[in-house]
Write a protein that binds this DNA or RNA. Structure first.
Lengths: 134, 134
DNA sequence: TCTACACCCTGTAGCAACTACAGGGTCAAG
DNA sequence: CTTGACCCTGTAGTTGCTACAGGGTGTAGA
């Protein structure tokens, strides 16, 4: 399999595949006589794994750990669970932050009377009380 | 006001203040004889505005536009409203994305039986069906 | 056979929005 | 008069790619 085929099979850009190789996430494949990368099914499987983990929002560092863990089939999967749970907590925090932010922005927008900038409640919310920003 | 005072008054790092100046978001202040930056209340107001907008999740580009708009007090504030609404939509999209992701991750974690990696449902979810990832 | 075109290669620079040095200068207190 | 906190400039690092520049390769049609 050439890099373009691997890339389209995993909905990845060619540059990204090479990037994953460079940072050591994807092992360097064999080369053809023309120095083209030649991938096998193991590469396809590993890249699919990486892409799915990324789609679930795991960082590349977390993906690296998950890959290492997944290679040791006899181990307890508690470490995997920990990584996933930490990630879930992180996502919950982000959702909470964004929701709070959304509420505040919504309130701000709702107060806008669509007059001039001088009376704009959005600008007023941003600016410190009464001060001139110019 | 020296840069350290301005920074702590706005909960900003000193480097960030200099960064805002470099990218033209904060006007260059006067200098003391020792070449220290000397800030006034207008700088404090402007930096507060920037920080507040950043806290609400606006990009620096959006902040730049908001600052420009806020300087022209006579204009209609419709443009301000547009920027804020676009941002709100963006936040809603992010919350929706994260929530979907959270649900999937939660399902994945919930299926984990805490055995070995070989039987781990989390790893299984990530790996393509039945394939060896090594 | 020539040539056009799609694909491949390496290496570097760019994005957002900072953050962290390195290697210096200044100033007030003890 | 020295210590330490602060200030200066400039550059490189962070995350996870993406986009060139400047070349080589392989194949299909004229």
């Amino acid at each position: 399999m050439k890099i373009g085929e691997l890339a389209s099979a995993t909905a990845t850009k060619v540059e990204t595949v090479r990037y994953y190789e460079k940072i050591g996430l994807l092992p360097p494949p064999a080369r053809t006589s023309a120095n083209y990368r030649a991938y096998g099914n193991d590469h396809l499987a590993r890249l699919s794994f990486i892409r799915r983990a990324r789609d679930l929002g795991f960082t590349l560092e977390a993906v690296r750990e998950l890959l290492t863990l997944s290679d040791d089939k006899a181990q307890s999967c508690d470490a995997v669970d920990v990584i996933a749970c930490v990630h879930l907590t992180e996502i919950d925090r982000k959702i909470a932050d964004l929701s709070a932010l959304r509420a505040e922005l919504d309130r701000t927008i709702g107060s806008c009377r669509h007059g001039t900038v001088a009376d704009c409640k959005i600008i007023e919310t941003l600016a410190p009380r009464g001060k001139d920003t110019a």
